[in-house]
């Protein structure tokens, strides 16, 4: 059995429609952000990823998650 990790996944803006806001989810060690994006089913064709953060720091989709990390997913957003 591969070692499992818990990742807190947070969705924002359009990604929340018909989906969760925040959830602790279980993945195998070294799962990368891209795989978690796919796993959540958020509509990235319609609203491509704008910003990904792990523990409040920007990362790219190849970032490997560790146990206890928080992964936040945003479509392109802005304001001022």
């Amino acid at each position: 059995m591969p070692e499992m990790i818990d990742v807190t996944v947070k969705l924002f803006a359009q990604y929340r429609k018909d989906n969760f806001k925040v959830e602790v989810r279980s993945y195998v060690q070294n799962t990368i952000a891209r795989d978690i994006i796919a796993d959540t089913g958020i509509p990235i064709e319609r609203f491509p990823i704008g910003v990904l953060m792990v523990n409040g720091r920007h990362v790219d989709e190849n970032h490997a998650l560790n146990h206890g990390d928080t992964l936040s997913m945003f479509p392109k957003v802005g304001g001022g």
Binding site: Q14, P48, P75, G78
Partner: peptide, 16 residues
């Protein structure tokens, strides 16, 4: 533009 065309009309500046 995804921000001026979609995000701002849907959520306003408060999306921030």
């Amino acid at each position: 533009n995804p921000i001026s065309g979609e995000g701002l009309p849907a959520f306003g500046t408060n999306v921030l």
